[in-house]
């Protein structure tokens, strides 16, 4: 498979909060000791509930947040503490599609200016070459004819078209890696899938690697090769999408799958199994397995004491649970 595009070892990001002159600061352990790899031309979906650390992980990999601990390798290079010129290289090679398509475009910029900006920042091409790259990027997200869309302002575009401009902007520097943070969660059902297809095309045709952040397991199933499940700042399970869905190994993943309905008129006749309680505080996470207070099979003296590590129980399928086998 060759050298991985992205490789994380023990990546950790804590946020410091509430420190004062005489008070010791507290730490939000948003991402704790995450290790994973992403190959070129592959999509890894990162699924988890609100606050589980998905965005923080994505932003830390791109070095938009300073890692607290651990190592990030990108295209064979250690980028954990890159600075200045070298960091600019990373900024070019790795892009983010942010969580909110509505606030991520400047309303006073027409599309061509929004797309030209990164090219200018990185000093790429002359006017003519930049214009051609803009047209190619618009074409790749199916905003055709590109000349027509190049002169539109964001308010003249539908939500789906706006999101495609955001994708085109992420594509303009020919990146090798893209973190797409909930790229379709604000869009209507009928429009959603067309954006996801475009991302898939980019992945397959251009060999771009994707980290696709979502809370929607069904979308992950259809648009990613592998799925990682996050719970309270930890990666608790990761594997090929088929294997993860048909044979989830972690009790949290199992509960998550149970909780998601398919469109089926029979659903209304029965209650759906659901976990009790709420995700824990990240300032004071539970000892041992962070899931143990809600886990239906937790074993006292083990799960509340010892932290489970990721183990490969099936080919390429990892789980962090003491009792999974």
């Amino acid at each position: 498979m060759g050298e991985p595009l992205v490789s994380l070892t023990g990546l950790t990001k804590w946020f410091e909060i509430g420190g004062g002159m005489f008070r010791r600061p507290l730490h939000v352990r948003a991402v704790d000791d995450v290790s994973l790899v992403i190959q070129r031309g592959e999509t890894l979906a990162l699924v988890g509930e609100s606050g589980s650390g998905k965005t923080t992980l994505g932003r830390t990999i791109l070095r938009l947040l300073e890692p607290t601990d651990g190592e990030i390798q990108f295209a064979g290079k250690i980028v954990t503490h890159l600075k200045d010129k070298d960091l600019k290289w990373l900024r070019r090679k790795a892009q983010m599609i942010p969580q909110d398509p509505y606030s991520s475009l400047n309303p006073t910029y027409p599309v061509n200016k929004a797309l030209e900006e990164p090219l200018v920042i990185h000093g790429l091409g002359n006017r003519q070459e930049r214009w051609e790259r803009i047209l190619t990027a618009l074409d790749s997200v199916h905003l055709t004819p590109p000349e027509f869309f190049a002169h539109k302002y964001p308010h003249m575009l539908s939500g789906g078209q706006r999101q495609r401009v955001v994708v085109a902007r992420a594509m303009i520097l020919d990146p090798e890696f893209i973190v797409a943070d909930e790229p379709v969660s604000m869009l209507d059902a009928s429009v959603k899938v067309s954006i996801l297809r475009i991302l898939k095309e980019i992945q397959e045709n251009l060999g771009v690697g994707f980290l696709h952040i979502t809370h929607d397991l069904a979308t992950a199933h259809h648009f990613a090769e592998r799925i990682g499940i996050m719970y309270a700042g930890k990666l608790v399970e990761m594997g090929p999408h088929e294997s993860l869905l048909t044979e989830p190994l972690h009790p949290y993943t199992q509960a998550l799958i149970e909780a998601i309905p398919d469109p089926d008129p029979e659903n209304r006749f029965r209650e759906r199994p659901a976990l009790p309680g709420e995700p824990p505080s990240l300032v004071n996470p539970p000892a041992g397995c962070r899931f143990h207070p809600r886990c239906p099979i937790a074993r006292e003296g083990l799960c509340d004491v010892e932290e489970p590590l990721l183990r490969e129980l099936r080919p390429g399928h990892f789980v962090a649970c003491h009792l999974a086998e």
Binding site: A189, V193, A218, H221, P263
Partner: peptide, 8 residues
């Protein structure tokens, strides 16, 4: 619409 929904 039914066909456009990703189903788990």
């Amino acid at each position: 619409l039914l066909k456009s929904v990703p189903i788990l």
